[in-house]
Design a binder for these strands. Structure first.
Lengths: 115, 115
DNA sequence: TAATCATATAACAATTTACTTATATGTTCA
DNA sequence: TGAACATATAAGTAAATTGTTATATGATTA
């Protein structure tokens, strides 16, 4: 059982700044349930690959997410060891599910194609 | 009893963007317990009066806080009618108390002087 | 090994942000 | 009414942010 950490105001503002971008917030919400690779996010958000990569890097640099290479693909997931993990979850649980985005991806068959 | 509202992602990012500034986040945390006037914030944060006013305006424009004039002073408080009020509280309760800032203000007697 | 695919990084441009200083507005009170 | 005080607004600036295109890196496979 993990103890609820008390973060200081600077840590909190750092996390909130990262989550205050709609793309990043949705990325993190999607990662609440499962891992995704970069190309899936590119598809979901209809954004350029560099843009997605840069968002992911910010989240990773702050320790909120972690990466794992699987062959040529890079998979991202929430970092449960992050000091901010509990805080992050408490925000995510207030958000509307983004599952439709994932389901749409599966319909198109893009999920399997890519990863 | 207020029903917990489900906000959409755009509303949430708007709120998070406002809270992702350390000054604004601390302002809102302080307002969790009581009202403050502009000059008190100026003192607490050792910031210029226009800067504080601009922060307050952003929070007010988003409906998170409300103003009430009392003589020449303008008092700000949390807006409990805001659509985002529950969400806001759920974040505030995760933050360390900022009470020392208020207590310091009382010690200096600045609270009474000003308002 | 060369071509291809997935991702990361660099360099740049447009926009946004948070402050500053100067000034305007509104209230109080002598 | 005019001086003093509290606050708001405007205009300008420096820094941060988020996208873009171009290119580098790393893994796969023919």
């Amino acid at each position: 059982m993990k103890i609820d950490q008390m973060l200081d105001m600077s840590q909190v503002t750092k996390v909130l700044k990262l989550l205050s971008d709609k793309t990043r917030l949705t990325i993190v919400k999607l990662l609440e349930n499962q891992s995704f690779c970069v190309c899936e996010f590119v598809e979901i958000f209809s954004m350029s690959q560099p843009s997605i990569s840069q968002h992911l890097r910010k989240l990773r640099d702050a320790g909120l997410i972690q990466e794992e290479r699987k062959g040529q693909w890079m998979f991202y997931s929430l970092n449960k060891e992050s000091e901010s993990y509990d805080f992050l979850l408490s925000i995510l649980e207030k958000l509307p599910s983004q599952e439709e985005k994932f389901i749409e991806l599966e319909k198109k068959g893009t999920r399997i194609n890519c990863c």
